[in-house]
Design a protein around this nucleic acid. Sequence first.
DNA 1: TGTCGTTTTTATCATTTGTTAAATAGTTTC
DNA 2: GAAACTATTTAACAAATGATAAAAACGACA
Lengths: 187, 187
Amino acid sequence: MEINQIIDTIYPLTTPSKNLIKASITETTFPKGHILFKANKIETSIYFIKKGIARAYAYSEDHQITFWFGTEGDPIVSMQSYVNHQKGYEDVELLEDCELYELKIAQLQKLFLEDIQIANWGRKFSELELIKSEERLISLQFNTATERYLALLKNHPSIIQRVQLSHIASYLGITQVSLSRIRANIK
Amino acid sequence: MEINQIIDTIYPLTTPSKNLIKASITETTFPKGHILFKANKIETSIYFIKKGIARAYAYSEDHQITFWFGTEGDPIVSMQSYVNHQKGYEDVELLEDCELYELKIAQLQKLFLEDIQIANWGRKFSELELIKSEERLISLQFNTATERYLALLKNHPSIIQRVQLSHIASYLGITQVSLSRIRANIK
DNA sequence: TGTCGTTTTTATCATTTGTTAAATAGTTTC
DNA sequence: GAAACTATTTAACAAATGATAAAAACGACA
């Protein structure tokens, strides 16, 4: 997805303000398997996915638990770094060769203080992420594992096609074996 | 908690900007049991809790599931109303007699467009809520019911003292009977 | 095509949580 | 203080999920 569309979808800006953001954005590519964010590190950039798919995971005991997927158009953000300038707890792994837009957090925060439109763009950005986070929270708390799997299948079919089931199982809050059982029961 | 402290904790403002927000805030009180927000309704205000405690819940089948508690200093927001001007899915019930600060969403959004400091205050407000939402998500996905109960006991002991266990159980994602079992096993 | 390595499914048994109902404890009201 | 109501705990059984191991399916690659 093109950067203009990504920016506009969050909050429409006048051309000068939009150009200020775009001037801070660079395009990069990374191969499949690249670890974009490392846990216990303060990240200095946020990214937007032009092409590809990524996951965020953290360790519980000795095994990884995936808690986020991002595809074309989605932002990749270590919230603890972005909001609090603190170490994050997650790795972000690219699951395909990816084309990304990179935006330095420090530059963006400078723009927040200088341009009211960009400040409101940043406000909207967090508001939209907050809505997504709340929806996922409700889904985890209200729905059974089977319902969550069916919802993912319906709302984000490309994730199930592009990502291996062990990651999806942990994203749904169950083991891979449980997910296999659920899939077998649905058919 | 006083409104000055609540505003400052989110993001420090110069006096004129702060006064603009404060001029839009009124103080109200409601008795225990009052339903502040109704599901399937577009709410027009957000609140901050001066004194008291509240919960947000929604219905799954025929029973209520509590997914949020707020105490002194916390904001009460129907995110769908605040962010998207759409109907929310939750009721908010006051669990004690409450003193609240009320802020009309329309007035706040007007200020967002006029005052860059307030726009950044609003940005920070959502960022902080987002961090809280993500922490809760991680807790639901990574921890067992027993671990979640112990964390609540440690981080928010006043909730367990002030709220009945049936609400806490649904907040933890388990039945009241399960919570009783967990409590019995801990001692 | 065939082999190796990875991913997914299936099977078995243990553990956790849900469901229903009854018993106990605690609160409110008269 | 007794009765009525509500909240919490306990008990018994059912259902869902976890853990471990083995089998099957799938992919990469010589």
